[in-house]
Design a protein around this nucleic acid. Structure first.
Lengths: 223, 223
DNA sequence: TTCAAATAATAGTATTACTATCATAAATAA
DNA sequence: TTATTTATGATAGTAATACTATTATTTGAA
């Protein structure tokens, strides 16, 4: 038996559901590769179509524009991450241990999950770090938000906020602390590799230093 | 006597120094207005030229492309902010009070500084919140960094890091904490207005709640 | 006054971000 | 089985973007 994890996506992000066809799955697969390789600004539907072996018009039948495609794959990752957070903390009763596990998950790239064949999670993690904030840093964030595009991010943030409250029910800023550690985990990662003097870390494969920093920050904050 | 503050800019950011001519100053002034109004993605040199009353080619004589112009105005703001941080904490001897003052400066838009005639700092603060990270979240961050484009940001970060160390010389992550509070100040501001459920704040003119959150975060972290 | 530098005016190109049309192949329903 | 919908492929076309180049005109310093 073959298990497949399916992340339920917001339907208004796409014109045709990419999970439902080979071409659709290729659009996701190759857009992750290309955005990772070229960066979001240099990524175009034409290049994507060439990589897949289809035409530009073919891609446009699935996604209205490249921004929606970015939001799609970023949202997918947030959904997958929330699943990981819930799954990997299920049997932990101590909220402190749970929160540490969450910080670890937020700070490290996971190996390519075999349960999601057409998605390479480790590439996606890199995309999240470099391009993630571009999903919402737009002039149309309000409309996008009305369409619920950011629900997976909010859900994750809320889940993390709840674990924070489990650790200390009187802590006053669970959501802000949650969004701060999520974003900081990514940003410190980006800085460590690209602008290291903005951090106190040396480049390293594992992200222990970032994890230590965030643990220190979080647990002192919530006592 | 008329005082003018001049922020020394990295010369490789521009082709011709915009501070040295009327057209140049207009390019800065109107690009701030237009980027604020339309967002960086929809901002073009053609629209800018029309707003100023010059031609596209005229703008290209000053800046190679719109990304360098963005980096220019963002860097300008970092430089100006560092000046503010130094100036406004000069006579404070207590490092804790100093750090609080810095957090306040990072979290609030300052009134338009009359000492910089062609720059509207309150608009620039909004641009920094929404577009600031796009200055470095690119595939060419490494080359840009080699050209020292991010020096003003690093300098500010370092100045804040030093104040953190004054408060607690044994704190292990002064730079990471500094970059985290700088970015978090902006992000929480953006979220408060656009994705409020990622924060614990209600929309408000002054940013006291964000300042309280950051003070709490920082001073618990460094004890 | 003269000469160099800055600007204005105009034109042109490759690429991007789409939209539209029509033919064909594959899946499905009558 | 045929008829018909549906997805894809192939091709074309358009407006806007991100530039580069050329020439003429203005300005301002020597």
């Amino acid at each position: 038996m073959r298990l497949e994890v399916q992340i339920k996506m917001n339907e208004s992000l796409y014109l045709r559901d990419p999970e439902q066809s080979e071409l659709g799955k290729n659009i996701i697969k190759y857009s992750i590769q290309l955005i990772h390789e070229k960066g979001f600004e240099a990524f175009t539907f034409k290049k994507l179509a060439e990589a897949i072996g289809t035409t530009e018009a073919g891609v446009y039948r699935y996604f209205e524009n490249k921004h929606k495609l970015l939001v799609y794959i970023i949202s997918w990752y947030w959904g997958w991450l929330e699943f990981q957070v819930i799954y990997q903390t299920k049997n932990i009763s101590d909220p402190t241990t749970k929160l540490k596990q969450v910080i670890q998950l937020l700070s490290t790239s996971v190996e390519d999950d075999i349960m999601t064949a057409h998605v390479d999670e480790s590439l996606l993690y890199q995309i999240l770090i470099s391009e993630g904030s571009k999903a919402y840093l737009t002039k149309h964030v309000e409309q996008d938000n009305k369409q619920q595009y950011f629900k997976p991010y909010k859900d994750l943030c809320n889940a993390v906020g709840n674990i924070i409250l489990e650790c200390n029910p009187t802590y006053k800023y669970p959501h802000s602390l949650a969004s701060t550690i999520i974003e900081s985990a990514h940003l410190q990662n980006f800085f460590m590799y690209n602008l290291p003097s903005l951090t106190d870390f040396k480049k390293s494969k594992n992200n222990t230093q970032i994890i230590n920093f965030l643990n220190d920050l979080v647990f002192r904050s919530i006592q």
